[in-house]
């Protein structure tokens, strides 16, 4: 893993998202229990916790896929927790999923191009002719998609249907689709799960580069502690839906509750 990453290239800025007293239940299961935290511009914020702690549920609340019963989420001053899922994308939030959610029947390129759909405006008439403004627009966005493909080094699989790709590459394409949207806030749900050492190393490099080069704010869920400690500016620990601790990687590492609940118990 790249050692010694610090926030030297970018300035962690103001608070861009406020999560306030969010609670979410499924029947009797309290997936999130009064969770509050802030997200600052340009930071890499890690959410960790044992299985079933509510990490994915938290991301789902942020992009409007789940609607918490209590509490509120404000993003850039707008209320998020009651908004529709597709509006998250319009506000500049993109994400990847714990279980890959690619468009299986489409090629790598088309998957990445869908990430740019929102930015394409030419209407039906021009689309039908594939000519003039629509063609020009399509080519501009193709060029953008190619930048993402270059960045993630997936030129060779451009035209391959993603269903035929190995797992590690699928994860990379999914990141590509999220990046193609040029998000301000990127939510990554276990982007390195199931990868070998080299693949993880690549993924870490991409995440850091995105954060450095584009200043993208990143919320990252990850089980690999060495990665989390290395790349995140701040860490939030969830356990049974409750926020157990929050702080810099070092602070969290030294927190006795965290050691008891998480680090000490499951060390895979």
């Amino acid at each position: 893993m790249p050692e010694g990453h610090t926030a030297q290239h970018r300035q962690v800025g103001d608070v861009i998202m406020k999560v306030e007293d969010v609670s979410l239940s499924f029947g009797g299961v309290r997936a999130l229990d009064n969770v509050s935290f802030d997200v600052r511009e340009h930071e890499i914020l890690a959410i960790i916790g044992p299985n079933g702690a509510g990490k994915s549920s938290m991301l789902n609340c942020i992009n409007g896929f789940y609607h918490p019963q209590e509490g509120s989420i404000y993003y850039k001053g707008n209320r998020r927790d009651t908004a529709k899922t597709f509006e998250a994308a319009e506000e500049g939030i993109a994400r990847t999923f714990q279980n890959i959610a690619l468009f299986k029947g489409m090629s790598t390129l088309d998957n990445i191009m869908t990430g740019r759909n929102l930015k394409m405006k030419k209407h039906l008439f021009w689309q039908a002719l594939y000519f003039g403004p629509a063609l020009k627009e399509e080519m501009e966005h193709r060029a953008k998609a190619e930048e993402v493909i270059d960045f993630l080094e997936i030129e060779a699989i451009r035209k391959t249907p993603v269903g035929r790709l190995p797992y590690g590459l699928q994860k990379r394409v999914e990141l590509g689709r999220a990046l193609a949207a040029e998000p301000d806030l990127l939510l990554l749900d276990e982007p390195m799960a199931g990868m070998n050492y080299e693949e993880k190393e690549d993924m870490v490099r991409y995440i850091l580069d995105v954060n450095d080069e584009f200043g993208t704010t990143i919320i990252l869920i990850e089980h690999d502690m060495s990665v989390v400690m290395d790349i995140s500016d701040r860490v939030i620990v969830l356990d049974y839906g409750k926020k157990l601790a929050e702080g810099t990687p070092d602070e969290v590492k030294g927190n006795q509750d965290v050691i008891d609940a998480y680090l000490g118990v499951s060390h895979d």
Binding site: F86, A89, E90, A101, L102, F103
Partner: peptide
């Protein structure tokens, strides 16, 4: 095709 293949993911990247 995005809606066909994975409607949730489609919605999350902004497809209505």
């Amino acid at each position: 095709m995005a809606i066909r293949d994975m409607d949730i993911a489609a919605e999350i990247i902004g497809i209505r």
